[in-house]
Design a binder for these strands. Structure first.
Length: 103
DNA sequence: CTTCTAACA
DNA sequence: TGTTAGCA
């Protein structure tokens, strides 16, 4: 591992740079957190630190928002999406286990 | 930087 | 309802 850290959320941005990168306002990002759409890390002082994954999440929020969903609906969609991924992982593991036992 | 409040489309 | 502006 040299240049591409396979790890996901290493980098951390302040709210102002995160807002600019995603093209949203700072107050809007705080609102998203208030509505439970996203939960960025916090420094000891209480400042938000947005990871690269958070930026992707923010763009997904903007996309769903453009589709006509409200913040409450987006929260549910993100939750269902996370649950879906979890189920996929469990299914994948279960498949590998049964394959081994079958051989 | 944080939170809160108020106003607008 | 979501976004923005101003204050503490």
């Amino acid at each position: 591992m040299t240049k591409k850290m396979v790890g996901q959320s290493a980098a951390v941005y302040g709210i102002s740079v995160a807002a600019e990168l995603v093209g949203l306002g700072q107050q809007t990002l705080r609102q998203y957190e208030n509505k439970g759409l996203i939960e960025p890390e916090r420094t000891a002082g209480g400042t938000r630190r947005y990871s690269d994954l958070d930026l992707v999440r923010l763009r997904r929020i903007a996309e769903l928002l453009a589709c006509g969903l409200n913040l409450a609906g987006i929260r549910m969609v993100l939750g269902l999406e996370a649950a879906n991924l979890k189920l996929r992982r469990e299914l994948k593991d279960a498949r590998q286990l049964s394959a081994k036992g079958d051989e």
